[in-house]
Write a protein that binds this DNA or RNA. Structure first.
Length: 586
RNA sequence: GCUGGAGUAGCUCAGUUGGCAGAGCACGUCCUUGGUAAGGACGGGGUCACGAGUUCAAUUCUCGUCUCCAGCUCCA
């Protein structure tokens, strides 16, 4: 049975049940979605968890009756009359918006009918396995100013077994939640009371993880002809007016008043700032200023500036979510200034860089999307076409399948988004490549061409991991907190069995550290079993158990996370094997 | 920002129909010196999210604020 049809029918049965329990409720829409279905209702009070159980029960009764789904065609006007009589205002509105002359409705049982294009299953008895999951508010037509309806989510499968597997998968996702794992592994926390919401504090282990990631990225960027730059966290408001960010995102920027400061006169907007500064929400204007600091020749291009740039955005309270949406985060951000004919090659290089980086971090699958010009945009239509074509050509050149998101681009240019898929096949927005003719124009960027004439360079914005915060969240969930060896903040934990071997353990620690292995030592007064348990819970890749036997022979007893005792090895041998394994991992 | 739910020790959670606040883990001290996932005893730790109101008395009831959770809208 086609799952979409099954789920769509299941959502009708849910609406049927709701109408029987609460006849005054008005129906909105109820489609099948990925993994399930929902139906939006207009009801005066909220649905409680108990109500969900009641609805499920009623649905089971309707399913037990095995009522037929009967299709009827009606002309538009009589359909409008019918739904007006039923006081289904939302349905009336839907029908009025439909272009065709006739509409179809479906009846189930004596009492229930619904506007619907279909198709549906034959009868309600074909539903074998379903569950209602949650209630949430949702705007009518998804528009913020419209009334808020109540949406009930549910899911439905062909067999009970598949349903249970899906529910288990949902539980599995909960176990991987970075908001739980992150703090419990002492990677980070997100204080709310003392500091404010949406601000991340990296604890030593998380800061170490981030440092490892940053070091890797710096090295790779230098290798590929990028130059590392560092720009200020606050910059005069006039700069953001020039860039256009102020007009588009003023409400989402942190604006600092420093009225005792004299107005900045940067020659561009004299006197406009009156000592107002903006906490940077983007790194591009900073990089642009560096580009503009001297005359550039066509021979210098492409110029690739890379910055681990920390930006702040005043996100609405309701959108904050763990490490995925925060108010302060660090991007692995680069801006590439190039000649028009270099554009495609640069884009292709970036795409290769992205894919290689994803693989190094252990992500094997991804989806690619091309987003085009939005309603609010700057720049000329001609430039937008050129930019979009450049991105599209690069994707085609590389033979990369992609989907198009019309109108989803940035205000200054179209973009390619690369969404990686984790171990549970969930997608994470990380890399993005944006083509931009607009900012070079606004900032009057130039290079001198072979004939000595001033020309305008093209600019690419791109991030690989996106926000390091979000990426670390993705890593934690992908690996369930069990990071690969090369990323583990602590790679080896030394466990001396008793006080008399602590000195030996200290020697082992020094030796490992000389080989750049990250190592901790647990000298606390706990039993061996307890220390091993702690190491497992902290997801440390290797433990070395050190007692009299090992100390006498210069050996270490190796315990691998998840696979237990590996037996004893000479210390040198262990180090050799470990180093090989770290290399192999990436 | 919107709709709904929630907030008790560092963590996981009991509890008080309005009358001195509880457990396990974690932490500290002592005993124990161990061989591959929790050794034992004792102890410290709380403005019961915050602010008002009702009351002889509020962690408990009412209102407001903040934060978190499930979504919606948004995401340069």
């Amino acid at each position: 049975m086609d799952l979409d049809t099954l789920r769509h029918s299941c959502s009708h049965i849910m609406a049927h049940a709701v109408k029987e329990l609460w006849p005054d409720v008005k129906l909105a829409i109820g489609p099948a979605i990925e993994d399930g279905f929902y139906y939006d209702f207009d009801k005066s009070g909220p649905f409680s968890d108990d109500d969900l159980l009641k609805i499920e029960q009623k649905m089971r009764q309707i399913i037990a009756k095995d009522e037929q789904f009967l299709r009827e065609e009606l002309d538009k006007n009589s359909a409008i009359e019918l739904f007006k009589k039923l006081k289904e205002d939302y349905k009336v509105e839907l029908i009025q918006a439909l272009p065709q002359d006739s509409v179809s409705i479906y009846r189930t049982g004596k009492s229930f009918l619904d506007l619907c294009r279909g198709p549906h299953i034959k009868s309600t008895g074909q539903i074998k396995a379903f569950k209602l999951l949650s209630v949430a508010g949702a705007y009518w037509h998804g528009i913020e100013t419209n009334p808020m309806l109540q949406r009930i989510y549910g899911t439905c499968f062909n067999t009970q077994k598949e349903l249970e597997a899906h529910l288990k998968n949902l539980d599995e996702a909960k176990l991987r939640d970075h908001r739980k794992l992150g703090p419990s592994l002492e990677f980070f926390d997100i204080y709310h009371k003392a500091a404010g919401a949406g601000l991340v504090f990296y604890h030593p282990k998380g800061a170490l993880l981030r440092t490892i990631i940053e070091d890797y990225e710096k090295k790779e960027h230098l290798k590929r002809g990028y130059q590392i730059v560092i720009t200020p966290h606050i910059m005069d408001v006039s700069l953001w007016k020039t860039s256009g960010h102020y007009d588009y995102y003023k409400d989402n920027m942190f604006i600092l008043n420093a009225l005792d400061e004299p107005a900045v006169n940067n020659g561009e907007a004299p006197g406009t700032s009156q000592g107002e500064f903006v906490l940077k929400p983007m790194n591009c204007p900073g990089h642009i200023l560096i580009y503009k600091s001297k005359t550039r020749s066509y021979k210098d291009l492409p110029i690739r500036f890379f910055e681990l740039g920390t930006v702040y955005r005043r996100e609405k309270a309701g959108v904050l979510h763990g490490l995925l949406r925060v108010r302060g985060f660090t991007q692995d951000d680069a801006h590439i200034f190039c000649l028009p004919h270099q554009l495609r090659d640069e884009i292709e290089k970036i795409i290769e860089f992205v894919f290689e980086t994803m693989e190094v971090f252990g992500f094997k699958e991804w989806g690619v999307e091309l987003s085009t010009r939005p309603e609010k945009y700057i720049g000329s239509l001609d430039d937008w076409e050129k930019a979009t074509a450049a991105l599209e050509d690069a994707l085609k050149d590389k033979g990369i399948p992609y989907e198009v998101n019309p109108g989803d681009g940035a205000f200054y240019g179209p973009k390619i988004d690369i969404k990686l898929k984790d171990a549970l096949k969930r997608t994470w927005q990380c890399a993005t490549i944006q083509c931009d003719f607009a900012l070079p124009k606004r900032f009057d960027l130039a290079y001198i061409d072979a004939e000595g004439k001033e020309k305008q360079p093209v600019m690419l914005h791109r991030v690989l991991l996106g926000s390091l915060e979000r990426f670390i969240g993705a890593l934690i969930e992908h690996y369930k907190g069990e990071l690969p060896l090369w990323l583990s903040p602590c790679q080896v934990l030394l466990i001396p069995i008793k006080d008399s071997v602590v000195e030996y353990a200290q020697g082992v620690k020094n030796k490992l550290e000389e080989n750049n292995i990250r190592v901790d030592i647990d000298t606390r007064n706990d039993t061996l079993d307890k220390k091993i348990r702690n190491a497992e819970l902290n997801k440390i890749p290797y433990c070395l158990i050190l007692g009299e036997r090992e100390a006498q022979q210069g050996m270490v007893s190796v315990r691998k996370k998840g696979s237990g005792n590996q037996g004893a090895l000479l210390l040198d041998k262990f180090i050799e094997e470990l180093i090989n394994q770290i290399r192999e991992h990436r």
